[in-house]
Design a protein around this nucleic acid. Structure first.
Length: 471
RNA sequence: GGCGCUAUCGUCUAACGGUUAGGACGGAGCCCUCUCAAGGCUUAAAUACGGGUUCGAUUCCCGUUAGCGCUACCA
């Protein structure tokens, strides 16, 4: 049975990189008919927060992919400690009574790596038990078997054969002095207990994996398969961080700007994965069908944002593509939270359908639909190509006359206005443009006839009259 | 510092060792057109550097450089 998990730690909002890891896991599970598990890795009591938990759930729910099983590590401390003690009992871990090292300066070291404190590693069992019995705090460390084996190896499904010398792996902590298991311990214990078959996670864990292999072996279980994902980085090459790059790293920023969840999924899946057939705009099902780990590449992917534009242009384009292929009824529904309340949304939706890239764009492009009074605009805007205010006035008066009596539908309005232009001996564009500005308040707007239909005769005539007064 | 990973257009990426190095976004131009958008067509733009191996390297190996990751009780 194929089982994968996404295991965020609730120490911040849901990060775009985390969201992508979730997506890769989900796609892998669905493609192979496996089980998707969500597990909250909340062993760091110092940094956990409820807001963070909420934010992660918010983000994941917005992604709308779902999961099959849910666990949180704080409920499973017993299991972790039991497994840690099992390792200790086998003699594969030892107590380290060294006081915790607080500062980076103290941690700093030159030359080779820090591996262990010899006097702690070699403490006699009696001495160790005695000090523990009197309550002296200690960290439980894994005893890396450097004397009996040279290499730790595993075969990464993305990065291939990996090996590291035991001489380069330090005696890492399993249990903190507080008794709380570390990430390494809790994660492996849960992965073993939950019978996770594939661990798909960020490449930042690639070197940690050697430690994990050691833990699985100490536990006497077959390690899962590993697949590490290339990281998402900022345009300056640094890793994405809230402090440095701001809200662009949070998925809620995408949600609030009016990305469609699936467009977001489509975007992030293309960062580090390719279907290898030049397809880019894909439905959820197409993604599930096409997704394989073989398509994952090994180099980090840059999210191309800037100060002027917080979103990668490709993400925006993909969003526009998905908006355009979405049914109008659905669009109207999605638009609701992004525009002022109106009973004409269903009519407005088709007019912005292929003109918006983010849902929030609709409020700007369709602004004149949402107000009773048009905000002031420069009277010169009314002047058409190769014309002047006199011509503008002529067009507006002629147009108003037509619109006052024409049957109120697209074809009749078009026919009427075209005939009107001919009668006035002006170009159709010279007729349409002043009317457009009069009813929309600006030169760039959705197609005129549809717009007039939605606006209604009364509003249209009223706005044209006001424009004529301006001149 | 040590260890590990990576390196194709500005960005995301494709290319059983043999291609005019392909696609997409973004840019530029043209067409269509009631403005905008969409759409169509055209175009500029890349194999980090140096050595090998090979008849032939984007592709395999080594080195350099650069970036990223991990590095004594964050995950």
């Amino acid at each position: 049975m194929l089982r994968v998990r996404f295991a965020p730690s609730p120490t911040g909002y849901l990060h775009i990189g985390s969201a992508r890891t979730f997506v890769f896991n989900w796609l892998f599970a669905r493609h192979n008919g496996g089980t998707m598990i969500l597990r909250l890795d909340d062993t760091d009591v110092e940094r956990n927060s409820q807001e963070s938990v909420d934010s992660i759930f918010d983000g994941l729910k917005w992604l709308d992919l779902g999961w099959d099983e849910y666990y949180q590590q704080s409920d499973r401390g017993e299991l972790h400690r039991r497994m840690a003690n099992e390792i200790f009992a086998k003699g594969l871990a030892y107590r380290d009574f060294t006081p915790s090292v607080a500062t980076d300066e103290e941690k700093a070291h030159t030359g080779g790596p820090w591996l262990f404190n010899a006097d702690m590693r070699n403490l006699s069992p009696e001495e160790s038990d005695r000090r523990a019995a009197v309550g002296e705090p200690f960290v439980l460390r894994f005893r890396v078997p450097r004397a009996t084996r040279d290499w730790v190896k595993f075969d990464d499904l993305v990065y291939g054969e990996q090996s590291k010398s035991t001489a380069d792996i330090e005696d890492f902590a399993l249990l903190r002095s507080s008794g709380v298991p570390t990430y390494h311990m809790a994660s492996c214990a849960d992965d073993a207990d939950l019978r996770i078959s594939h661990i798909i996670r960020g490449q930042d864990h690639l070197t940690n994996t050697f430690k994990h292999v050691l833990i699985f072996e100490a536990l006497g279980v077959e390690p899962p398969k590993f697949a590490h994902l290339p990281l998402l980085i900022a345009p300056d090459g640094s890793k994405l961080s809230k402090r440095k790059h701001g809200p662009v790293v949070s998925v809620t920023t995408y949600r609030d700007a009016g990305f469609l969840p699936h467009a977001f999924v489509n975007f992030v899946v293309l960062l580090g994965w390719s279907p290898k057939n030049d397809r880019e705009v894909m439905t959820r099902q197409e993604l599930v069908d096409a997704f394989t780990l073989e398509g994952v590449n090994r180099s980090n992917a840059t999210i191309n944002f800037s100060d002027e534009d917080p979103f990668d242009p490709k993400a925006v384009w993909l969003n526009a593509e998905h908006i355009r292929t979405m049914p109008v009824d659905e669009l109207a529904k999605q638009l609701e939270p992004f525009v002022p309340k109106t009973d004409k949304l269903r009519q407005i939706a088709p007019l912005v359908h292929e003109r918006i890239r983010l849902l929030r764009d609709a409020a700007g492009i369709g602004d004149f639909f949402f107000v009773d009074q048009l905000p002031p605009y420069d009277v010169n805007e009314l002047i058409p190509q190769k014309g002047d205010l006199v011509l503008a006035k002529k067009a507006l008066e002629g147009g108003r006359e037509v619109l006052a009596q024409v049957e109120w539908n697209h074809d009749a309005i078009e026919a009427g206005l075209r005939a009107g232009a001919e009668k006035l001996k002006i170009k159709t564009g010279q007729m349409f443009q002043p009317i457009r500005v009069a009813v929309c308040g600006r030169k760039v707007a959705p197609p005129l006839f549809e717009t007039l239909v939605v606006l209604g005769r009364e509003t249209a005539l009223d706005r044209i009259a006001k424009a004529i007064e301006l001149i």
